[in-house]
């Protein structure tokens, strides 16, 4: 295994370009190093260490947005009162990623680029209309997170690009919901989950572990937009079937995922209980 230690972001981009995109960026390593002894195919690879790049660790504000550097950890956001007040779902989701050790090392950008359909950071970022800022020796590119994924583990980031930052527009939200349903209360891979927000920009409903990628549920968003009458969880089923396509796997069943999605959504957004 070869490890590259760039001293700044520019050098990181150069090293990545020089490796012809073959070097693998390593941030917290909480995805890349899992089961390391058994990952024979990775042992010979070259890794590019991002964890020491101060530029990536910064949390900044502009007039219109919160800018999370590409190396910001969950723990950093959890410790930042302003961030948690303005974007409470970042706190809610961040606290439910793994447990403290993982929150301390794991990064939002790593969660995005790992591209797991079960990622817990991605849904809340997507529900806040996050934009991914990519950088390479060839320049910069911006992609809305909701258009970032192309299919299972497929994304629009090219191998020579780094996530420089994730940008969240500042808006007033009157609804902010995040639900993670896992097999236990911590250190759990999500069986199904969703984030939902409402602002002047409209409704956002984002599901994870319900499709090959984390995705927006446009039919459900439309129903909320139009105030369609929903009296029971079952009434949501047709829209859910349009928006997502859960599967049976080692962690749960398609039926459970659909059913519980309808019930948690219903109780969070449609029922009049308090």
């Amino acid at each position: 295994m070869t490890m590259l230690f760039p001293s700044d972001l520019e050098e990181a981009c150069e090293m990545l370009a020089a490796s012809d995109g073959k070097a693998v960026p390593l941030a917290g390593g909480t995805d890349l190093l899992v089961h390391w002894p058994q990952r024979f195919e990775d042992h010979g690879r070259t890794f590019l260490d991002l964890s020491q790049l101060a530029e990536l660790r910064a949390i900044r504000w502009s007039d219109s947005a919160l800018i999370l550097g590409g190396g910001v950890t969950y723990w950093q956001t959890l410790g930042d009162r302003a961030v948690c007040d303005a974007f409470p779902l970042l706190e809610k989701a961040g606290r439910q990623v793994g447990a403290v050790q993982i929150q301390a090392r794991g990064t939002w950008a790593g969660n995005i680029v790992n591209a797991s359909p079960a990622a817990d950071g991605v849904p809340v970022l997507m529900a806040y209309d996050a934009v991914v800022e990519l950088v390479s020796t060839q320049g910069e590119e911006e992609i809305p997170l909701s258009e970032f994924y192309l299919g299972y583990k497929q994304m629009r980031r090219r191998p020579n690009q780094l996530v420089r930052a994730v940008r969240l527009p500042r808006r007033r939200h009157d609804v902010e919901v995040f639900e993670k349903i896992g097999p236990r209360r911590a250190q759990a891979i999500t069986k199904l989950g969703f984030a939902a927000t409402h602002s002047a920009a409209g409704w956002r409903v984002v599901a994870n572990s319900m499709a090959p990628t984390v995705c927006r549920c446009r039919t459900l968003e439309g129903m909320l937009e139009h105030g369609s009458p929903i009296r029971r969880p079952e009434d949501l089923m047709p829209a859910i079937r349009q928006d997502v396509s859960p599967i049976d796997d080692i962690r749960s069943t398609a039926q459970y995922r659909q059913k519980v999605f309808s019930r948690t959504l219903f109780h969070a957004l449609f029922s009049d209980e308090k």
Partner: peptide
């Protein structure tokens, strides 16, 4: 055992 990893064989954490 098909779920022979601690990720997929779920034992209680202190929070459970």
């Amino acid at each position: 055992m098909a779920n022979g990893q601690l990720t997929n064989y779920i034992i209680p954490t202190s929070d459970d």
